[in-house]
Structures are given as structure tokens and as C-alpha cells.
Amino acid sequence: MKTTFNRNRKKFFLIPFGIAALLAIISSVVMLLWNNLLPEILHVSTITFWQAMGIFILSKILFGFGKGGGGGPWGRHKVVERFKSMSPEERREFKEQMKEKMCGWKKPNSENS
């Protein structure tokens, strides 16, 4: 009997090439966007393909690789789940606490919420 690895050896062999191709495409997009937008907007110089790849990799290291959806960068999905399980009184109290934390700032036209 063949193991899964032996049956899918070609797929495992192609994975590094797929990753390299994806990285090259993303780096090209970063380079094109940078070179077409930022020199006119921020008066910066243009970048090369390798610099674009470095910027992309650095941004992934600093800001994370993402979790595929998950509800936002600050764990908003956790707050939504907690909010769903609250009673109406707990919701009102939570909203009041959030208003205090936000220094009383309100969105326009949100007088009745």
C-alpha cells in the first residue's frame, strides 16, 4: 500500500514553486502600486522588484499573516460572541462602559442608539 505522501509526491514537490510564484506575483503588484501611486502622492522614490518583496515580507512579519477572515484585527469576533450571550441589561451596561472609554465621542446621527 502506498502512503499519502507517496501518492501525492508530485503535489508536495510543486508546493515550493507555487509559493515562489505567488510571492513573485504579490511582489510585482506591490511594486506596481508603489511606483504608480506613492511617488506622486508622498514624493518618494520608486522601488525595485526586490525592494517590493522585502516590503511585503517585512509587513507580513510585523503585522501578521492573518487568520483567514476571523472578525478583524482586534478580535472583534470575540466581542460579538460575548455581546450575543448578554442579557439586555448587560448590553446596556456594556454600551455605557464603551461610551465612557471612548471619552463620550459619538458618531454623527447616533443620538438615539
Rank of each mutant, 00 (worst) to 15 (best):
F83A: 13
W50L: 08
S27D: 07
M53W: 13
S110M: 06
A24V: 08
C103D: 15
W105H: 04
R91Q: 04
F94T: 04
L32E: 12
E93D: 14
R92Q: 03
I41W: 02
G68H: 10
W74C: 00
F65V: 08
W105F: 03
P73H: 00
C103E: 14
L22K: 05
I57W: 00
F5V: 08
R76T: 10
E89L: 01
E93F: 02
R76P: 01
P73C: 02
E111P: 04
M98P: 07
F12L: 15
S85C: 04
I15D: 14
A20W: 01
M1Q: 12
M53V: 14
G68W: 01
T48G: 04
W74P: 00
K84L: 00
T4Y: 12
T48F: 01
L37V: 07
M1T: 15
P39R: 06
N8Y: 05
V30I: 15
R7H: 10
R7P: 07
S27R: 01
K107E: 06
F13C: 12
I61P: 02
L33N: 14
A24P: 10
L33I: 15
S59N: 12
K84I: 00
E90C: 05
M31E: 06
E89I: 08
I61H: 01
I26V: 05
G75I: 07
I19Y: 13
R91C: 03
W105G: 08
S110E: 15
T46P: 11
V80D: 10
N112R: 04
K95I: 09
F83E: 09
E90L: 04
V29A: 07
P16Q: 06
R82G: 09
V30R: 14
I47T: 14
M98V: 07
I19F: 11
M86A: 04
E96P: 08
F63P: 13
G104I: 09
G54W: 11
F17S: 15
G72C: 01
F83C: 08
T4S: 09
F13D: 15
E96R: 13
